[in-house]
């Protein structure tokens, strides 16, 4: 029997006041799958993530996260990395302690971290290759290293879904590649579903399983305009791509209204 998708969205519509910002959205993210949503600024990427996280109401359609409506899902099942790092500036804390924070919601009130929690934190740091810097102050790290620490913190919650909003912003090409390789490693070792939004379609396409283009609605290649044969796609972009979007067939990729 096919396992239920971790994220299932059907015919979604979202409005801000009376303005439709998302419509006709169909999206499926399964276990062990990395899906990237690309699209212009103002295209509704962050709004879609807010709906999935239960932070924004929708007007029509069906949204199921791990089989439940977004507001009823156990928040600890979803690891989240926001678009802009909104941590307190110059917070005096080590890498290890930062990742340990990911355990706090899981531990619940009144409980102190145990030896097992410390082991989980170390394992998460190992996955993102930051173990050697565990005692370093996070303010001394580079942008790419900090991103990896925050991924480790999300992993420490042992979620089933990882949601990343523009994770590669501010990283150079080398750091981006490292970062995406880490995500692939997480997908394979932790059996997680990873959904990320990005305005970049360069490096990301090499590492993800599906790409969808979002501008008010989702446009997949092969679903709008002339379909691109899958074997051609595989030849050009490798076997790890199922659907590729964002070429001349992608009618949705005009610039957003807010640009």
């Amino acid at each position: 029997m096919k396992e239920k998708p971790y994220i299932l969205i059907e015919d979604l519509e979202v409005r801000y006041k009376n303005k439709v910002v998302l419509e006709n959205i169909f999206l499926e993210v399964n276990k062990r799958e990395i899906v990237s949503i690309v699209g212009p600024n103002g295209g509704g990427k962050t709004t879609l993530l807010k709906v999935i996280l239960g932070l924004k109401d929708y007007t029509k359609g069906k949204v199921e996260i791990l089989g439940k409506p977004p507001k009823e899902v156990d928040k600890k099942q979803i690891g989240y990395l926001p678009q802009k790092e909104q941590t307190a500036k110059n917070f005096p804390i080590s890498v290890f302690e930062t990742v340990m924070m990911g355990r706090y919601p899981k531990l619940g009130f009144f409980k102190k971290p145990s030896e097992k929690d410390r082991e989980i934190v170390l394992e998460c740091l190992k996955i993102v290759k930051m173990e050697h810097l565990k005692d370093e102050n996070i303010n001394k790290l580079s942008g790419g290293q900090r991103q990896r620490v925050f991924i480790a913190r999300a992993l420490a919650m042992e979620p089933k879904i990882l949601i990343l909003d523009e994770p590669s912003t501010g990283l150079d090409i080398v750091a981006q590649e490292d970062f995406y390789k880490t995500l692939v490693n997480i997908r394979d070792t932790k059996n997680m579903a990873i959904l990320m939004v990005s305005h970049d379609i360069g490096v990301v396409s090499t590492f993800v399983d599906k790409i969808a283009c979002l501008n008010k609605t989702i446009h997949y290649h092969g679903k709008s305009g002339n379909p691109i044969p899958e074997d051609v796609l595989k030849k050009v972009f490798g076997t790890n791509i199922q659907i590729l979007v964002h070429d001349q067939h992608c009618k949705g990729c005009q610039r957003g209204e807010d640009d």
Binding site: L53, L55, D74, K75, K76, I78, Y80, L81, P82, Q86, T87, A88, F91, I93, T98, M101, Y104, P105, F150, R153, A154, M157
Partner: peptide
Amino acid sequence: FDKTVAKASG
């Protein structure tokens, strides 16, 4: 330290 993620974690 991180209000946004703390809120998203419940």
